[in-house]
Structures are given as C-alpha cells and as structure tokens.
C-alpha cells in the first residue's frame, strides 16, 4: 500500500509517493522514539542486556535520555513500591505529550510474585499511570521486550493526529 511499501522497500521508479501526512509523521515518530533511562529491579538487567550488542535495541531508533523532559516514552522495568510510586508519577507528569509507557515484567504489570503479602508493593503500575503495552515475563526475555516495542510502534502508526479526536 502506497506510502509504507515505498518507504520501507527500495523503490526503482523514484519520484512521487502518495500517502497521508499523518502516515508520514507517525512513521517518523514510531521509528525514532527516545526512552527515559530508568531501571528499577531485575528486569532492568535484561533491559541492559537488550541494549548491548547481542540484542541491540538501538536499531529501533531509540536512544536513552537521562531527563524525562527529553524522552518520548518510559519503560517501567521492575517492582514499583509505594515509596517509589509518587516519584514515578512525578516523572510521568514531567514528560511532554505525546508520551507512552511500556510496563515490563510481572511486577510492573500486576505486582508479580509479591502480590499476596507485599505490604509495600504497588500491585501494578497501571494503578497510577496509563500503560500502553504490557510485556509479561519474570523477567521477560530481551526478544519479548523487542516485540513489545514493535507493538508500540504499531500503536503509534494507527494513531490519529488530525481531525476530531474521539
């Protein structure tokens, strides 16, 4: 179909591409997301392994940014405790729109192995911030997180930028 095939595959004819501006902008946004450098617990080690050369997260166009003001999305990797929950909310509020959240690992999805007797564990980060993609696992394999990233890219491609928002 029009724009995407022409952009992703090399085209012989050259010249004119037909497509919507929205598609072009979404394609650019989805493939150059910058993430907030933020690791909480064990999942952060798998996340670091994904950044290293074997799994290579940077080929998705992502770069780690230390400040939330410069980031597009946030990967919550690890257990969210009540003491940390307020700080995560502050970090999320500091990010500029459009922003996304990937919840990585069992603890960030629903409290993980600490769901039953954890008096200090927040059972799922979606109790405080809206989550776009959930990646299950304890910890998830780096390939699983890369699939989560691809699902986020799909979600960004299907976002409506112009026109009346529902």
């Amino acid at each position: 179909m029009g724009l995407l095939n022409r952009l992703d595959d090399p085209y012989e004819t050259g010249g004119v591409i037909l497509g919507t501006v929205e598609d072009l902008l979404n394609w650019g946004r989805g493939r150059s997301d910058w993430y907030l450098h933020f690791g909480l617990a064990c999942c952060a080690i798998e996340f670091m392994a994904m950044n290293a050369s074997h799994f290579d997260f940077m080929r998705f166009g992502t770069i780690p940014r230390p400040s939330p003001r410069q980031a597009d999305f946030m990967i919550v990797s690890g257990t969210v405790t009540l003491k940390m929950a307020e700080r995560i909310k502050k970090l999320y509020d500091q990010m500029a729109e459009p922003k996304y959240v990937i919840s990585m690992g069992s603890c960030a999805n629903c409290g993980g192995p600490y769901w039953e007797h954890g008096y200090h564990v927040l059972k799922g980060v979606d109790r405080i911030i809206p989550v776009d993609v959930y990646v299950p696992g304890c910890p998830p394999r780096p390939e699983a997180l890369e699939e989560g990233m691809m699902k986020l890219q799909e979600k960004i491609m299907n976002q409506k930028l112009f026109g009346k928002k529902k």
Binding site: E86, W115, L122, K123, I128
Partner: peptide, 15 residues
C-alpha cells in the same frame, strides 16, 4: 499481628 493497610497516600495497597 500486623495488618496490611488499605490505602497509603491514595494508592490502594491490597491486590
């Protein structure tokens, strides 16, 4: 004999 609290700073604590 400790009981887990219901809420802390507005966050719900039990599952």
């Amino acid at each position: 004999d400790y009981k887990t609290p219901e809420y802390y700073h507005g966050f719900k604590v039990p599952y």
